[in-house]
């Protein structure tokens, strides 16, 4: 189904702002393979303005095979984690047939910066940067304390399951990469003991955080990979070097230290997690990202995706191999 978003938005503006409301602006922010994000604003005659974000699915969605959740599930998650105090942009509207936008939802637009490189290096964030790792720990504790909403129908994942899933994809690719091979076998033998499962964000990293120069983490974005799993998965993912944006010396997102992340996590009520658990999940994170890079190259090689970007991402596998070899050398 082709949807003309710009044609549908004025009607949505009236639904959200009342009959005299108009669409004041609309701009497409990003378009992934399956999800679109639009920034738009609704203004009434009296000049009351609402800045909003529309997320809509632009490709067919199969809930059985997809790793991502539906936008309806995302809406339920946002409400649930906000009740525990986690900063997710509040839901304004869950779209239905009347809107003619397909599967979509509207949230408030939270201002700030999401570009990882700016967050780790721009002087505007110098003052708030030292606080971010602790805030991330506190927010993760809030998310992990949230009962998984039944309506979201979340999948679950654990260390060995994730390892097996990605090893299968790697085998299917036909690539022969000694470091990835070593990492699969080593992590299988040295998997951390299973932990009680909790709600996870699933893609908690620098790039999915809206950072405000004054207050720090203003919102956690992109809940579509949320699932139930080991709390250390979220804690390790934000430490993967591929999203430290040139600051490997600051292991948490390129802005902070492990100790601050874990201290914030415990202070906010999270069950203590050892650094070695975080590092094991971080290594699995690098390995998963390496395999994802292979997959993105393959989607181009197989003719599924024509973008010039895809084959280049295949050359990012070596970054994960170097990171992994240093992690293995340091001991996991």
């Amino acid at each position: 189904m082709t949807v003309d978003v710009l044609a549908a938005l004025p009607k949505l503006a009236q639904r959200l702002g009342g009959e005299d409301a108009v669409l004041a602006s609309a701009e497409r922010l990003s378009g992934g393979a399956s999800m679109e994000t639009w920034a738009f604003a609704v203004e009434t005659l009296k000049g009351v303005r609402q800045d909003l974000i529309l997320r809509r699915r632009s490709a067919p969605f199969d809930p059985d095979t997809a790793r991502s959740v539906s936008l309806t599930a995302e809406a339920a998650l946002i409400a649930a984690v906000r009740a525990k105090g986690a900063p997710a942009a509040p839901l304004v509207h869950l779209c239905d047939d009347e809107d003619g936008l397909g599967e979509a939802h509207v949230t408030a637009r939270v201002s700030g910066e999401t570009l990882g490189r700016k967050i780790v290096s721009d002087p505007r964030f110098e003052a708030v940067r030292p606080k971010l790792a602790r805030q991330c720990g506190e927010i993760l504790a809030q998310i992990h304390a949230t009962p998984p909403p039944q309506a979201a129908g979340l999948k679950s994942a654990d260390f060995l399951g994730e390892l097996a899933r990605y090893e299968e994809i790697y085998r299917g690719s036909g690539a022969e990469r000694p470091v990835l091979e070593l990492a699969f076998q080593h992590l299988k033998k040295h998997a951390p003991e299973p932990a009680p499962l909790t709600l996870l964000h699933g893609d908690f990293r620098n790039g999915n955080l809206m950072i405000d120069p004054e207050i720090g983490v203003a919102a956690v974005l992109d809940w579509e990979l949320s699932h139930v799993g080991d709390p250390a998965e979220d804690l390790g993912w934000i430490c993967v070097n591929s999203w430290r944006f040139g600051r490997p010396d600051r292991p948490v997102g390129g802005f902070g230290d492990y100790a601050d992340l874990l201290a914030g996590y415990e202070a906010a009520g999270g069950a203590p997690v050892s650094l070695s658990r975080v590092r094991a999940w971080q290594a699995l994170g690098s390995l998963k990202w390496g395999v994802m890079c292979l997959m993105m190259y393959q989607s181009w090689a197989g003719g599924v995706e024509a973008s010039v970007e895809r084959p280049m991402i295949g050359r990012r596998v070596s970054e994960t191999e170097v990171d992994l070899v240093y992690l293995l050398e340091a001991g996991l």
Binding site: P178, R247, P248, P251, R315, S318, E319, V322, D323, L324
Partner: peptide, 26 residues
């Protein structure tokens, strides 16, 4: 062996990538 090989590969793919080995101790 693996480290030397992947560092050579990284020098081709992304010579400016700041890898885990530059973290200065974990």
């Amino acid at each position: 062996t693996l480290k030397a090989n992947v560092l050579d590969q990284l020098a081709i793919d992304q010579p400016n990538y700041r890898h885990e080995g530059l973290a200065g101790g974990a």
